[in-house]
Nucleic acid binder design. Structure first.
Lengths: 238, 238
DNA sequence: CGCATCCTTCGGCCTGCGGCGAAACGTGCC
DNA sequence: GGCACGTTTCGCCGCAGGCCGAAGGATGCG
């Protein structure tokens, strides 16, 4: 969930938030969430303000690079500047729209996500930090590197450590886990390990989008892995 | 990327954004991104304002449920209210911090993501909308349902359509694709199909977090699938 | 060219809200 | 109890910025 590894070094979030913070601008942006470009006048009508007001807002949104404009005859069609903008609006909507009290179903789903989930492409939640801890305890990790011991253990599991090292992303960064408030393993290595866990069927995806479940095979496999026993051989799917 | 299916029916995003929009509050929230709870006075010092000012801000953040507080003696320790809040801040940071001009490497990554990526747990990008179109053309989908023809084709592929229908989420909603500006298939069915694509090795995850790549096997398999030929039998990994 | 349409710029009004110091409140310590 | 300290509440000031109507481009049409 917390994609610390991807956050630009302390970017100014206030100016962007300020652009979205005005109700009229928010209405405009939400209207544009549909994906199609809309004319300035139409946006003014949708937002319930005069053309002059809407124009001022659109000008600021343009400055802030939240929207882009294409002139066509005497119309100016505005659209969101990119997918990231839509993402921001959607995440904000999830936070703003969350009900003050959770339904039973929601809290059940929340508990599942706390137990084990994916964070982008690596394992997170209690399972994620647990795995990270056990890898450290077993002496597999030192700083952002893998020890020879770790190479052996992960290699035996079927993880392509060398491949992960060559990937175009950070190798083994800690990724702050937001439900556990502690680190789990992210980056190329975290993704590679997680891929193997799925290939082996040790974890399977759950009904809720990012939830994953530990299988019986996974429980046994992980226990064996960290008790030092050799693993049964394994043929990857690809 | 566009998780339309999860957005609450037009939630008010402006109030949340307004809370983040003030530079002082943004500084406080960013300070709390570290994960540990901090005392009010400490936050005041970090944000560079008087205790009175910080207190007022914290009070508003508390009202808006962006932070939570725990009293301990004469201190009050504030922390972010939950993982969603961290997520909002991180997404905002990505947008606010994005460089005006993309590096070669970034634009290469962006192109990869435009071609094919995952959106939560289903296929998106050109590949996602393409697959959706071909499923529709083949008469597999009707509204939010699967036709008998679709049952046959997907069943032959190894997709558990019945299982997806029973899942605790929408079955086959359209999900707006933000790079293509058209719909792709989301929900339980989209996830189930995507899972099979990975199991069969038709798609593999790429070096960039959400990127996926079509394999040669995938190209052939998909071509065969939509040309009506029978598929080679398939043993799932789990 | 003249007019209608769409959009932006300008000038003025006014509310909202962030800032501070001082005082009040609550808690721990002696 | 009395004091110190952390935090909140109160009162006040100042300004950023949202709103509109009117005027000023720009574009298309006849």
């Amino acid at each position: 969930m917390a994609a610390m590894e991807h956050v630009a070094a302390d970017a100014d979030i206030a100016p962007v938030a300020a652009l979205i913070a005005d109700p009229t601008r928010a209405a405009i942006l939400t209207a544009l969430l549909g994906g199609q470009a809309l004319a300035a006048g139409e946006l003014a009508r949708m937002a319930g303000v005069s053309a002059a007001t809407a124009s001022a807002h659109l000008s600021r949104l343009l400055d802030g690079a939240l929207v882009a404009v294409v002139r066509q005859g005497r119309h100016r069609y505005y659209r969101l500047a990119g997918p990231e903008i839509a993402e921001v609006l959607e995440v904000l909507a999830r936070v703003g729209g969350r009900p003050p009290v959770r339904s039973l179903r929601q809290s059940r789903q929340a508990r599942m996500l706390e137990e084990a989930r994916t964070c982008y492409d690596h394992l997170a939640g209690r399972a994620g930090v647990g795995l990270f801890d056990r890898l450290r305890e077993a002496g597999c990790l030192a700083g952002e590197e893998v020890t020879p011991e770790g190479e052996r253990l992960l290699g035996g599991l079927g993880v392509d450590v060398e491949g992960a090292r060559r990937a175009r992303r950070r190798f083994a960064p800690e990724c702050l886990d937001w439900t556990e408030r502690r680190a789990h393993l992210g980056g190329a290595l975290g993704a590679a390990i997680t891929a193997v866990l799925f290939e082996r069927g040790w974890y399977v995806r759950g009904p809720v989008p990012r939830a994953v479940n530990l299988t019986d095979a996974g429980r046994e496999g992980l226990a064996a892995l960290f008790s030092g026993k050799e693993l049964t051989s394994h043929t990857p799917v690809t």
